[in-house]
Design a protein around this nucleic acid. Structure first.
Lengths: 191, 191
DNA sequence: GACATTTCTTGAACCAGTTCAAGATTTTGA
DNA sequence: TCAAAATCTTGAACTGGTTCAAGAAATGTC
C-alpha cells in the first residue's frame, strides 16, 4: 500500500529503501467508505492525504444552493486544506470519499521531523506544490475565458476518467455552473 | 536590494551570511519601467520573479474582450508562470510591470544548483508555494460563492494597498467582471 | 426483485452581469 | 502647460446562466 506512495515519490526524487522505511513510520494508511469524511468543516486540518485507491473531493457548503465542489483527487494525488493546515484554524472545507478509498495520511505535526530525516521530501513536496499552483492557474484561466460548454469539453478531454467516476452534479459544481445547466448542455449536444 | 529577499527568506528558514553570499551569485536584480514586460506570451518562462519594489501583474489576451488579469504581485511576492516553467513550453501569460519595479530573478536552469548549495531554500519555496496554493483556493472559493460586490469588499478589506495602486479595470478583470460593472457598483454604493 | 434513495432531465420565469457606444474625467509626458 | 493618452462613467439592449418545481431514470440495498 505504501509502495504506491514510494513509487510516486521516486518519480521526482531519489529514495533509498531505508528512507522508505523511515517514511513508513510517519505515514498512516486508512480506508474509508464512500461518503465518509477525511476532514470535516470546523475541524483543524491535521495532515495531507494521498489517495492510493479511490476518489475524494473537497467541498464547502454555501448559503443558497447546495455544496460547492472545490477540488478532486484520484489515485496518486494529494488533497488537503492548505488554508487550515497553514493557519491552524478550523477548516471551511469538507474532504469526502466519493468512492471507497484507501489513502495515506502525512500528519502536519510530525511532518517537519520526517523532512529532517529525509530531506529530499522537502523537494518532492515543493515540486508537487508547484504543479498544484500551475493547475490552479490553469483552472482560473478556463473559468474566466471559456463558456460552460467549453469547460466541459476541455475537462473531459483532459481527465476522461473523472467524468465517468463522478456524478454529474459534482462535475457541474466543480466547473462552475448548475447541475440543471449541465443537463441542458448535454441535451443541446445530442441534437 | 538583495537584502529584501534575504530578509523575506529569514522569515521562514535560517540563512547564514555565507549562504546569503551564495544566493547573491544566483540572483540577478533588475529594474523595469511601468508597462515593460518581465515575461512575454510565447516565450518560455526562464525564472521566478521576486518583487523588491513596485507592482506587477500576470495577464493573458482573450479573443473577445481585452486582457484578463490573472494575478498580481507587490513587494515581497513572487510571480511567475509555473505552467511554462514546469513544462518548458511557451507561456500563455504576460508578466508586466504596473508600476516602475525593481525585482530579483531566480533562473530556472541554475535553481537546482542553488538548492544543492543552500538546501533550506527548498523548504522556503515549499512554504511559499503552500501559501500560494492556499491563496488560489481562497480565490476560487470567493469566485464561486460571492457576488461581484462582495468580492470587491472582501478584496479591498484584505489588500487595501492594491485598490489604490492598481487601475480599476485591472481589479475588475482580476475579480472576474467587466470594468463597466465595477463603475456601476461604485455608483450604486454612493447612493 | 421491488422499494428507497440518489441522480438526471425539462420547462418557464427570471436576473446578475455583459456589450456596445459615447462622453467625461484624470493622468502623463514633451 | 497643454494636448494626447489612459481611465472611468452612464444608459439601453441583451444573454448565459440560475432558480424553482416536478417528474423520470438509474442505482443501491435487504
Amino acid at each position: 500500500m505504501l509502495s504506491t506512495l514510494a513509487a510516486h515519490i521516486r518519480r521526482f526524487v531519489t529514495l533509498s529503501d531505508e528512507e522508505e522505511q523511515i517514511l513508513a513510520e510517519y505515514i498512516e494508511i486508512r480506508d474509508v467508505k464512500k461518503k465518509d469524511f477525511l476532514l470535516k468543516e470546523g475541524q483543524v486540518c491535521q495532515g495531507n492525504y494521498f489517495v492510493i485507491k479511490g476518489l475524494c473531493r473537497a467541498y464547502f457548503e454555501t448559503e443558497r444552493d447546495g455544496d460547492q465542489t472545490s477540488h478532486f483527487a484520484i489515485e496518486t494525488w494529494w488533497i488537503t486544506d492548505y488554508i487550515s493546515l497553514e493557519s491552524h484554524k478550523p477548516s471551511g472545507f469538507n474532504i469526502q470519499a466519493v468512492e471507497n478509498t484507501t489513502y495515506a495520511v502525512l500528519y502536519r505535526d510530525t511532518q517537519d521531523k520526517l523532512f529532517a530525516a529525509v530531506p529530499q521530501l522537502e523537494r518532492y513536496f515543493r515540486i508537487i506544490l508547484q504543479r498544484t499552483v500551475a493547475a490552479a492557474h490553469m483552472r482560473v484561466k478556463y473559468l474566466f475565458t471559456k463558456s460552460a460548454e467549453e469547460r466541459i469539453d476541455h475537462f473531459t478531454a483532459l481527465f476522461p476518467e473523472f467524468v465517468q467516476r463522478v456524478p454529474q452534479y459534482m462535475m457541474a459544481s466543480y466547473l462552475g455552473f448548475s447541475p440543471e445547466f449541465f443537463s441542458k448542455i448535454r441535451a443541446r449536444k445530442k441534437a
